[in-house]
Design a protein around this nucleic acid. Structure first.
Lengths: 216, 216
DNA sequence: AGATGTGAATGAGTTCACAGCT
DNA sequence: AGCTGTGAACTCATTCACATCT
């Protein structure tokens, strides 16, 4: 039905499982790859085979947000990529602010570099006076005390927490207060989140520990 | 029953859900924290409250591997920590080998440093002749061509993949062939795993993209 | 009494199987 | 004919509720 896909917008902000979101990101990456390969149409089955996914799941995941496919034919690669890109908010750049310029913070600054997909590191703060003013990967480290100002000036939307475990909660709260819209937390603690400031955890140690389990 | 906990060994290598494994790592971390705080006994309820967890789930998770608690009393913090540590294979050191010494690989080498919990970076390889021989964080970068030799000499057990997406699969396979026991993959692709070489993925970009979804 | 360990109930997520378009 | 979109079946995970033990 024609208006079915117009209703898509209605559903977009409903609860989407993180697992689904995760896969959608991955689908988009696959589609980019297909674009590079010059493929303009793809069926869920073909995608599944190429990238080790489940065809049914691809269809279910996409169907949550509208009818993007053509029955009997498949999906238009460009169109679907555009839809997903917009759905995931990747059709524009997002500014990152790194909090904590120790080993991890500096490493991330270097790795993410100036430009990382739709993401751009625009500022870095630390509370150690010895680090403030130092240059790391084109950024001048600023004081955590000036967080609000830094956020406002830089237009940062996403905070990247690279502080010690003890400091994670207070820094998350400070970021939230400073108007940051989302936080990626590398500190190995469970931070209490506010409903309006989404939080994703990346815990390197837990990942290593899960592997260690298989090596006993 | 007394012999119930002796049978624990029998179950240890049965399929354990990654979700459970993940939580077990986290429980251990909580227990370490309790030890530092001088707490010697803890109930599932108390742990749940302190660290924002579910008491029932803590009990179910632990019960899979034996009867570690005392009914009516709770868990002995030290004893449980020891059990979990051994269960997860964290009662000894694990040697890491970093593959790919670009931005991410170097960043990881610096961050993980010489000693990171039970994990120790013992070697680093790259296939770029310009990088071979360079020193990064006390390590001399060696050639990917010598992978087998490097693994044997260094005793590396876990490979850390920090190579571009295109190179991930071949490097995973090379690691497996070289006798590596597990792989932590930072490349943004789904690598086809061999049953005897466990694989964990850490995908920074997907995590950022999931956050971006909430900022549209 | 008070906390564990666990079957039973519920809920979330995935896969199946097919109706409905093109 | 072929592939999408989707209710129904199924599997996996979490939560409930209570018997069991100290």
């Amino acid at each position: 039905m024609a208006d079915r896909s117009d209703h898509r917008e209605v559903n977009e902000l409903e609860e989407v499982s993180p697992l689904t979101l995760n896969r959608l990101s991955f689908y988009l990456r696959c589609l980019r790859h297909l674009q590079e390969s010059g493929v303009s149409r793809v069926s869920s089955q073909e995608m599944a085979q190429r990238y080790h996914l489940s065809a049914t799941q691809i269809r279910k995941d996409l169907a949550q947000f509208g009818e993007f496919g053509i029955r009997g034919v498949g999906y238009d690669v460009d169109a679907l990529a555009t839809h997903l890109s917009s759905l995931l908010g990747l059709d524009r750049h997002h500014a990152l602010l790194i909090v904590g310029m120790g080993n991890l913070g500096s490493a991330l600054a270097q790795y993410l570099g100036f430009n990382y997909g739709s993401f751009r590191v625009v500022a870095a703060v630390d509370n150690d006076p010895r680090k403030i003013g130092r240059k790391v990967a084109n950024l001048t480290v600023r004081s955590s005390a000036d967080l609000k100002e830094v956020v406002r000036e830089s237009g940062a939307e996403i905070g990247v927490l690279a502080v010690p475990a003890e400091a994670a909660q207070e820094n998350y709260d400070a970021l939230a207060d400073a108007g940051i819209k989302g936080v990626l937390n590398f500190a190995p603690v469970r931070v209490k989140r506010r409903t309006n400031v989404p939080l994703k955890n990346v815990d390197l140690r837990i990942n290593l520990e899960e592997l260690a389990f298989f090596l006993r």
